[in-house]
Amino acid sequence: MSNERKADSTAGASQSRDVDLEKRLDQLSQALEKEKDGLNGKTRAKTDSSGNALAMRLGSEFVAAVLVGAVLGWGLDKLAGTAPWGMVIFLLLGFAAGVRNVIRASTNSGLSGGRSDDQPGGER
């Protein structure tokens, strides 16, 4: 009795199996797409929120530019004998370059991996 019923139901299912399968495949691919989107969004948010890395990056960008300015100025003084003016001027320029670096690093948000200067002529 119960066996018969079971066979009946499977026979009924086999007719609509193709439609069913297609529907399920559709659902699956939609779910996968959603999952993928969600995953990407999550990883991006995670890397964005790693403030430690961003802070380290901004700090080192700034310090590096000041140091390079100082070294360039010092070298110029050594070569041209213009001490202390080369160092004074290049230290200030290095400071400006450091600020520029920090602004660029924070607005470009290089850590998120996005290319914000995609559009041609876009100011970075």
């Binding site: 990056r57 590096a64 530019a65 390079v68 290095g94 400006a96 520029r100 670096n101």
Partner: peptide, 17 residues
């Protein structure tokens, strides 16, 4: 000039970090 200094500061910050 500032851009040049900024460019040359890259390997420094890149490695020191």
């Amino acid at each position: 000039l500032i851009e040049v200094i900024s460019f040359f500061s890259r390997p420094l910050s890149h490695s020191v970090r």
